[in-house]
Every structure is written in C-alpha cells, then in structure tokens.
Amino acid sequence: MSIPRHWRLQNQRYSMVGEVCNACGAKLFPPRDVCPECSKPAYEPYRFSGNGKVYSYSTVYQAPSGYEAFVPYTVALVKLDEGPLVSAQLTDVDGEEVEIGMPVEMVTRKLREEGEDGLIVYGYKFRRLLREEAA
C-alpha cells in the first residue's frame, strides 16, 4: 500500500475518528460522508469512545502478507457502543480467552511494517478491558 493511502487513513486508524450524521444522529465508522441510515450527507467528524463488545471472532494461522509476525492472532467483529460493527485484530489476548460478548477497548498498535526499511503502520486494535484483565 502506498504512503499517501496510509496517510489519508491515519486519522481514522490512530484514534477511531469517524463521522456523525447531523440529520439522524447515527455514528459512522469508517467515515463515508453519506449516512447509511437516512442517506443524508454526514461530514461532521466524531471520535469514537473505542469501547465495544466482541460480536464474533476467528483465529488466523495463515496470515496475509505483512502480518506473518503476529500469527496466530485473533480477528474480531467488534460492535462499538455507538453502533457500528468494525473488524479488527485483538491484541494482548490469548485465543482461548476470547468469547462472544466480551467487552473490549481500543488501543493504538503497530498494524504492520513495510519491510525492514519501510513505513511502520499504526492503527486500532482491541483488547480485553484492562481493569478486568488485571483483576
């Protein structure tokens, strides 16, 4: 992926900045400028809380190119508290600990590195709530 494309996406990736529809109040992630609920324009930036629950998940053993360093890792559909369903990697978690409905929180981590001398790409992942893990 090219440097300009990473750069354009970094705001939503680093801190889950999506959009809110001023017409019906729906929260959008990823940002798409048109509200999927009411089809009105939606340009207002909205920073998501990063809290949600695991909707479904799977463990990856054969990773696509660029993600080999992390196998085995768990990917999940996360239902955000504000509504949208996003797909993301889970981190700081062992596969057997994951279950549907598990509360998670967003963290910013390394998504991949473009080789030894290329760009380091950062973005959101989700982990178990810190307070629950430490308990």
Binding site: Y14, F70, K110, L111, K125
Partner: peptide, 13 residues
C-alpha cells in the same frame, strides 16, 4: 513489549 508494540504505541497509551 509485545510484537505489535513500540515506543510510539506505548507513548500513545
């Protein structure tokens, strides 16, 4: 640090 962590990601938190 885990495989997806570095000084930047840790500083963010």
């Amino acid at each position: 640090a885990g495989p997806d962590e570095d000084t930047a990601s840790m500083s963010v938190e």
